Amino acid sequence: MPGHIEFLFDFGSPTTFLAHKRLAGVVARTGATANYVPVLLGGVFKATGNTSPAVVPAKGAYMNIDMARYAKVHGILLQQNPHFPINTIMLMRMATGLRGTPRYAPYVDTIFNAMWSLPRDMGDPAIVAEVLTAANFDAAETLALAGDEWVKSALKAETEKAVARGVFGAPTFFIGDEMFFGQDRLDWVEAAVSS
């Protein structure tokens, strides 16, 4: 019986972008299903006392090199976003609002690409509207999701649930109750979901 992967993500993480681009291959090879769970990375960091790797300059510099290596090996177009860091709360709320609809997967891919392949200033609602319109979304309708109270509550609840499960950053994967952190653990995720 095919396995199930929970993928906890935030658009603000370039390593999560790499994981997103590679996850489709894992799903294709294993027959697993993937459940994309939006969480607010800033909320996770605050709750756990964690910080971005960029806070430590040497670590940030190394991570940029390491991400470039992974992108090259896997044929992924990754560009550093000159607008980084970008507050992703609006983007993550829209993801939460679209979750469970046919537009969810296209939205996730569109936003990840705009953040890390194009890259655009995805903290600017006008730019976000342009990106959404170009991808055949109703920009006004989609942007309005970010202001819905049920969406705000749902994203907050998923973030709190993630922290309660031991999540401290993104990308994080769960196979059942087993947690894997980092896009560089996708081989382990694939092995776990295949067993």
Results as ranks from 00 to 15, higher is better:
His4Ile: 00
Pro14Glu: 07
Thr15Ala: 03
Leu18Gly: 00
Val26Ala: 08
Val26Leu: 10
Val27Arg: 12
Arg29Gln: 10
Ala34Lys: 01
Tyr36Met: 14
Tyr36Gln: 11
Pro38Ala: 11
Leu41Asn: 06
Val44Trp: 02
Phe45Tyr: 15
Thr48Gly: 02
Asn50His: 05
Asn50Trp: 00
Ser52Tyr: 06
Pro53Gln: 01
Ala54Val: 09
Ala54Arg: 02
Ala61Val: 03
Asp66Arg: 04
Ala68His: 01
Lys72His: 13
His74Thr: 08
Ile76Gly: 15
Leu77Thr: 15
Leu77Ile: 14
Gln79Ile: 08
Asn81Glu: 07
Ile86Arg: 13
Ile89Cys: 08
Leu91Asn: 13
Arg93Pro: 03
Ala95Gly: 06
Ala95Pro: 05
Leu98His: 04
Gly100Gln: 06
Thr110Asp: 00
Ile111Asn: 04
Asn113Ile: 00
Met115Trp: 06
Met115Glu: 07
Trp116Glu: 11
Trp116Ile: 14
Asp121Trp: 01
Asp121Val: 02
Gly123Arg: 14
Pro125Ala: 12
Val128Asn: 11
Val131Asn: 10
Ala135Trp: 02
Ala135Gly: 03
Asp138Gln: 09
Ala144Gln: 10
Ala144Ile: 13
Ala146Ser: 14
Ala154Ile: 03
Lys156Ile: 04
Lys156Gly: 05
Ala157Ser: 14
Ala157Thr: 15
Glu160Asp: 14
Val163Lys: 03
Phe168Pro: 02
Ala170Val: 06
Ile175Gly: 08
Glu178Thr: 15
Met179Ile: 09
Ala191Ser: 09
Ser194Lys: 15
Ser194Val: 14
